[in-house]
Every structure is written in structure tokens, then in C-alpha cells.
Amino acid sequence: MNIPRTPREAKAAATALLTATALLVLAACGGSGTGGGPGARGTVEVRIPDPGNSGVLALGKKDGSLDTALAKVGARVRWTGSAGPFAPAAQAMNAGQLDIATGSITSGITSLAQRPGFKFFTAVDPDAAGEGILVKKDSGITSVKDLVGRRVAVNQGGTGEYLLLKALARAKIPADRVERVYLRPDRTAAVFNAGQVDAWAVWATYAVAEIGGGTARFVADGAAIGSDNYSLNAVRTGFAERHPEIVRALYRYLHDASAEEKSDPAAYLNVFTDAGPTAVTGKAKEVQTRFTRAGGTVDPIGPEDIERFQDVAAFYAEQKVTRDRIDVTPHLLDIEKLT
């Protein structure tokens, strides 16, 4: 090792060292642009939860069409974790560990109360057919009023709690006349089927299997409840600021693919396997197909959507689900103006 002997030599050596360090940092960070693992040179990795066995993203993963669409704007997907409730996905985006996630406006509002590091950039109209309050066919519960004095499973601060409270308010039943049992959605089916709760406020992801099994029905669906529970796609704020062209490309893909899914739902079911716990079969497949045909498509967030988002925020504050009324507007992106 040659030790610099003069101030000029020392300065030159220090400059060379700083330059080399900077180059190493750029080399380490340049692959993904998202804080994720390294990708091909110049390619930005978009971290998205693994979509499972059905839906637009599942088919896009299998046939490579999503990566093909993103390659046009210098990006590709890195599937990470698994799709599930929005709350943990929101935390992952806040921590810089995830770039894209899907959730509902209801779970989104509760997540917005905690210094969010994400924004919503698409909306799908509320699912009038696929969400609601499930009861057993032989339960004797024929209306929302029959829930008084009973136990109803809900996911706290999310779609389930919203649907139950909205149904009770519409029927003019005080919320405290029904016991809310807070459970994770992926752990509720066994409790519901064991009769440990009398009803389950839930959405299509979990309702399809119960209705398809022939033992459960909606005592009130989204239409009867008057639900404003939009499905939304969220993007990490820092990612959207650095890569607006990727967010626009992702929107276009989701919009077009959701329209195709609506016209041909069967093509988006059982993408990787038609057997096992993730497969939708028998009557459940018919139920899912019907729900998808009746559902909406992925669209930009418009003024009429924002008004309904704010109604949900006001309702949550009124019902004391949130401490204060959350202003949703600062956390929305206009995909058509994103630059």
C-alpha cells in the first residue's frame, strides 16, 4: 500500500476513494430503484404481493403479460409475500418494503390515520353482489333486525366492521345491540361453521366458498346495505414520485385486464392449479363467476368516487371506528395527471 507523502497526494487519494465509494453505492442501488434486490441493469423492480391462484395479477404472473407491459417502461415485477388484508400491506409500504397493494376504502381509511407512506391511484366500484353479511341457511335469521342480541364476526376497522355498522345504521339499530367479534378473515370460516358466531360480515374472497358450499347465504348483500366500499390500488408515495410512468403503465394493464376478466371470468380462475385449497370448484366457481360479471373494472378515481370516499370517512368517525374524520383527498393520485 502506497501512503501519500504530500498534502496534494493525500487530497488526490481521498478524492479517488470518495469516487470509488459513490460508484459502489450507485451500482448497489441502480438495479431496482425501489430499495429492493438487484435486477437487470436499468430495470426497476416493482414489489407486489403474490396474487395467489386467481385474478388479473395471477394470470399476468403466469403468462408473463404483466412483465411484458412493464418492460416497455423499464420495469418488472418482484413478487413478494402474499396478498391478504390491506393493513399489513399498508405497514409494509410505510416501511418501504412494498410498492403496490390492493385494499378497500374502508381498511384504507383506518390505515390513513397512521402517517401513511402510500397513495391510492385506482378505484373499482363497490361490490354490490359479492360482499355482505353471511348467515347459515338454517339459522332462522331473515333480516338485519334479527341480528339484535347476536354475535357477528368482523375484521376490525375494515370491510367487515363497515358492512355490519352500515347495515345496522340503515335498519336504525343501535350498534351496541349487536356484539362484534373481531377476527382475522382468514381465521373466521372455522369459527363461523362451528356456530361460535351467528353471522359473518365479509367480502367475496371469503364469501364465495361459504355460499358455494350450499350452507350459507347473505342476509344482506352490498346492494341492500348501501355499501360505498370501493376496492382500491395503492402505491408507495416515494415510488410514484420517482416512477410515474410505471404507475401509469400498471394502471393501463389493470384496467384492460379487469375488463377482460369481467367478460370472461372463468379464464382468471384456477390460474396455477384447479385442485387444492386455493382452487375454486363446483358451485363456488359458479358463484365467483356471477360475482365477477356483476362487478366493476379498475378505473381512475373521479370526483364522484371521492365524494363517496369522504362519506365513508365521515361514517367511520361517527361510529367511532376512527378518532377523527380522515380527509382522504390528500392521499389520492389522479392517474391521468400523474407526471
Rank of each mutant, 00 (worst) to 15 (best):
M1Q: 08
I3E: 06
P7S: 12
R8V: 15
A10V: 07
K11C: 11
A16W: 07
L24I: 14
L24S: 13
G33P: 02
G35Q: 05
V44N: 03
V44T: 06
V44P: 01
V46T: 08
P51Y: 00
N53C: 10
N53V: 02
S54G: 14
S54I: 06
S54F: 03
G55C: 04
G55L: 01
L57T: 03
K61P: 03
K62T: 10
K62E: 10
D63P: 11
A71F: 06
K72W: 07
A75F: 01
V77I: 15
R78E: 05
W79H: 13
G81L: 02
G81H: 02
A87C: 06
Q91E: 15
Q91T: 14
M93Q: 09
N94R: 09
A95W: 00
G96K: 06
G96V: 01
L98T: 00
A101V: 00
G103L: 02
I105A: 06
I105C: 07
S107R: 03
R115M: 14
T122Y: 02
P126Q: 08
E131D: 09
G132M: 04
K136F: 08
S139M: 08
S143M: 09
V148D: 07
R150F: 05
R150V: 05
V154A: 09
T159D: 13
L165V: 09
L165H: 12
A167G: 10
R170N: 15
A171E: 03
K172M: 13
P174T: 04
R180H: 11
V181P: 05
V181T: 07
P185K: 03
D186N: 15
A190F: 05
A190Q: 14
A190D: 10
V191P: 00
A194G: 12
G195V: 13
V197A: 07
W200A: 04
W200Q: 05
V202D: 00
W203C: 08
A207P: 12
V208G: 06
A209S: 13
E210T: 11
G212V: 07
G213Y: 04
F218I: 05
V219W: 00
A223F: 05
A224G: 10
D228F: 02
N229E: 04
S231Q: 09
N233F: 13
A234P: 08
G238Q: 08
G238E: 06
R248F: 10
R248S: 11
Y251V: 00
Y251W: 06
R252N: 11
L254F: 13
S258F: 00
A259Y: 01
E261G: 07
K262L: 13
D264C: 06
D274V: 02
A275W: 10
A275Y: 11
G276V: 05
G276A: 08
P277C: 07
V280D: 02
T281D: 02
T281I: 04
K283H: 12
A284K: 12
E286W: 05
V287T: 10
R290S: 12
T292D: 12
D305T: 14
Y316D: 07
Y316V: 08
A317M: 07
K320G: 09
T329K: 14
T329M: 09
L332V: 14
E336A: 11
T339G: 15
